[in-house]
């Protein structure tokens, strides 16, 4: 569970990377692991600590698909939309998932239960279609296993 924004906790995280070369990405990853996203006040704080401008830090945060402005749902399902999964009817399965949970790509269910995101390759291409559910790999997805997955996520 992500914790609420806490400036001194953020300072601790930044300090942990002191002396590292090019520490911005590792800091951002740790901040997101802690708070579930990159909270707006983290940006000036990181900028000051690393002697960068806010614009520079913001520019980095916005460049990478992984960094979020707001926390995701309690569960995150990353569905692969790349070619290997397409060849195994991954798009049709993805439509089914989106319809089942009533969300669009990147969307979160209104109760904050689940976020469904697109990803482009998980390296599980010989077991397509595939996904990561809360970081755990899932392969050979079918209509039946998607139904079971939906059950498991609690819907």
């Amino acid at each position: 569970m992500p914790t609420a924004w806490n400036e001194s906790r953020a300072s601790e995280i930044i300090r942990r990377h002191e002396g590292r070369e090019g520490p911005l990405l590792p800091i951002l990853h740790d901040v997101q692991a802690e708070f579930g996203c990159i909270p707006a006040p983290a940006i000036p704080q990181i900028a000051t600590a690393l002697n960068l401008t806010r614009a520079e830090v913001h520019g980095v945060v916005s460049f990478y698909h992984d960094f979020r402005e707001a926390p995701a749902g309690r569960h995150v399902l990353k569905l692969c939309r790349a070619e290997a999964c397409q060849s195994m009817q991954g798009e049709a399965l993805a439509d089914q998932v989106l319809r089942h949970f009533g969300v669009a790509w990147g969307g979160t269910t209104p109760d904050g239960h689940l976020t469904v995101e697109a990803t482009y390759c998980l390296g599980l291409c010989a077991c397509a279609p595939s996904a990561l559910l809360d970081g755990e790999p899932r392969g050979r997805l079918t209509t039946a296993s998607i139904a079971a997955l939906a059950e498991e996520i609690g819907r």
Binding site: A82, E83, C85, C121, G123, C125
Partner: peptide
């Protein structure tokens, strides 16, 4: 970074 679909 192995980003190509179909590679692992």
């Amino acid at each position: 970074d192995e980003g190509d679909s179909g590679t692992y």
